[in-house]
Computed example of a mutant assay.
Amino acid sequence: MRIDVVSLFPDFVRQCAAVGVVGRAQQRELLQVETWNPRDYSSDRHRSVDSSSYGGGPGMVMMIEPLRAALAAMRDAAPEPAHVIYLSPQGARLTQGRVEALAKLPRIALLCGRYEGVDERLLAHEVDEELSIGDYVLSGGELAAAVIIDAVGRLQDGALNDAQSAEQDSFSDGLLDCPHYARPVQDALGTVPAVLLSGDHAAIARWRLKQSLGRTWLRRPDLLSQRVLDAKSRALLDEFRREHASQGQAREEPSRQDDAVE
């Protein structure tokens, strides 16, 4: 897969994409990340890429011509058509499902805005999709581009040492991930659940699904409202709720006794 990034800060993008799983994916030639600086395509001696906004108001707006020229050079650099994404808080919310769909494309291009944004005419004619990584405003699209590069890059076949890692991630099946534990078994902070030490793969799978359902119910109930649970999942979620309620009562008992002593 190839990802092209149009950005005023190409070094930042390249550095983010050079480490970890994404860096390894590039070394394995599973992923190619290229950058394009609009300043290189500016037509004046100051390498201008922005101007004041028509209608007044604070801030500058990125101009059409340098971006259009950068996008044209980007498209001509490889034969595959590029799906162009503008990174904007006004875009659709990025989800794991959208990441998985993007990861199947041969080539995407990420357009990083700065200042007050990009001339609307360029967005209307040169951009295929707008995406947002959250309901907040950043100084530019580079951090959002790094997020998409990482999320998409790690899904390329062979990028992860264990392919099941991606299958078991949060949101991969519409649920949050279950808790995970590492050595040692016993620590002052607690003990690893016995079921994970049992070697009973069926019991471990059942526990993990129950914890995944329970965590989603506690932290992201909106995700559960979008799913139709089968009978097994409903039973496991009910079991988690009962256990959660009993644990809450157990924590309250000592405080009640302390109040009585006082």
Rank of each mutant, 00 (worst) to 15 (best):
M1W: 11
D4T: 10
D11R: 09
G20E: 05
G20M: 04
G20V: 10
V21W: 07
V21P: 10
V22C: 13
A25F: 06
Q26A: 09
Q27N: 14
L30W: 06
L31D: 10
V33G: 09
N37S: 00
R45C: 07
H46S: 13
R47I: 08
R47V: 03
V49R: 03
D50P: 02
D50Y: 12
S52H: 15
S52Y: 09
G55M: 12
M60H: 02
I64E: 02
I64S: 06
L67E: 15
A69Y: 01
A69C: 06
A70L: 04
L71N: 06
L71E: 10
R75D: 14
A78G: 15
P81V: 10
L87A: 15
P89V: 04
T95L: 02
Q96N: 12
E100M: 04
A101R: 15
L102T: 07
C112M: 07
Y115Q: 06
E116W: 05
G117Q: 02
G117C: 03
E120N: 09
L122I: 05
L123C: 00
H125K: 02
D128N: 10
E130R: 12
E130H: 07
L131A: 11
V137M: 00
G141A: 01
I148P: 11
D150R: 12
A151E: 02
V152W: 13
R154D: 14
D157F: 06
D157N: 15
N161L: 13
D162N: 09
D169G: 09
L175N: 07
C178R: 09
P179Y: 06
H180W: 05
A182G: 02
V185M: 02
Q186W: 05
L189V: 03
V192F: 02
V192K: 02
L196W: 07
D200A: 00
D200E: 05
L209I: 13
G214D: 00
T216C: 08
R219L: 11
R220I: 00
R220P: 04
P221H: 13
L223S: 05
V228K: 07
L229T: 04
L229I: 08
R234P: 04
D238G: 15
E239V: 13
R241W: 09
S246R: 08
Q249P: 01
Q249G: 02
D259M: 11
D259R: 13
D259Q: 11
E262D: 13
